[in-house]
Amino acid sequence: MIDFVIFSVTMIAIWSVLGISLHLQFGLTGLVNFGQVLPFAVGAYGAATATAHGLPDWTGIAIGAVMAPLIGILVILPAGRLTQDYWALVTLGAAEIFRLTMLNVPNIAGGVEGMSVYRFASNRVGMAFALALLIVAILFALRLGRSPFGRMLRVIREDEMLAATLGRDPVEFQRSVTVVSWCIAALAGTLYAHVVGYISPNSFTVVETFIVWMAVVLGGPATISGVVLGTVIVQLTSVSTRFIAEWSHLGFELVSNLRLGAFGLVLILVFLFRPGGLIPERSERVDAGSQ
């Protein structure tokens, strides 16, 4: 029982960090990124590569934290000037290219078999790391959201033209926030790999991206407390699928399908009846004189 609680808390912390990285991009800046699983996967594969070559653990973190923003820049550099529809397609495509590469070129990272990763000595250590990362991510995101930089991101979200009129280049801001956000997501991915101890291309599909989106939209994309609350709900539902399946005798596959269907339905209902999520953003009055 205690193991289960530790596992749940760890998963909630890791996916909350991933949710916060999406909060920075979508909640604050309004970028629709349908490939948020990509930096997460890059972080995880960074850890796996470090383990495979017998390198110390921090190299895994470094590989992920450097590679993910680099790939992020590669994706956003040309895509920054696209409209949202195309930006969604490009990020979705980029994430799938990465997954397909890992799947079809076994020489890089074991193909469909995946790779095993060095695991933390005890699950408590994993939980401690996950919570520490979560706290750092929350403090960072709060600070960023309240800074002038964060305010400009909100301006870009509401009206890119206005931001340009104020003399700021929206693309430049979008690029910076993508680099930061992907770096955070990569750290979450590295930690995920070390907690689970095994990664394969099947852990990083479109469905995983969708689960992050689900949590963020449900809780409230523009607030950090909303993102964490959404993640708690979604992850608790996910980890308890096995128990519900045992208890209801419906079979694991059916229950997990029903769970995904419920996620889809909840997403639709949130948009219909509570567009700001469970914890919506409050409008802030900023007095120019006090700045």
Partner: peptide, 17 residues
């Protein structure tokens, strides 16, 4: 349009399930 796009994922997931 971004909102509709996200909702269409929800619809897709529901139908798939």
């Amino acid at each position: 349009p971004e909102g509709k796009m996200i909702v269409s994922w929800g619809v897709a997931l529901f139908l798939r399930a």
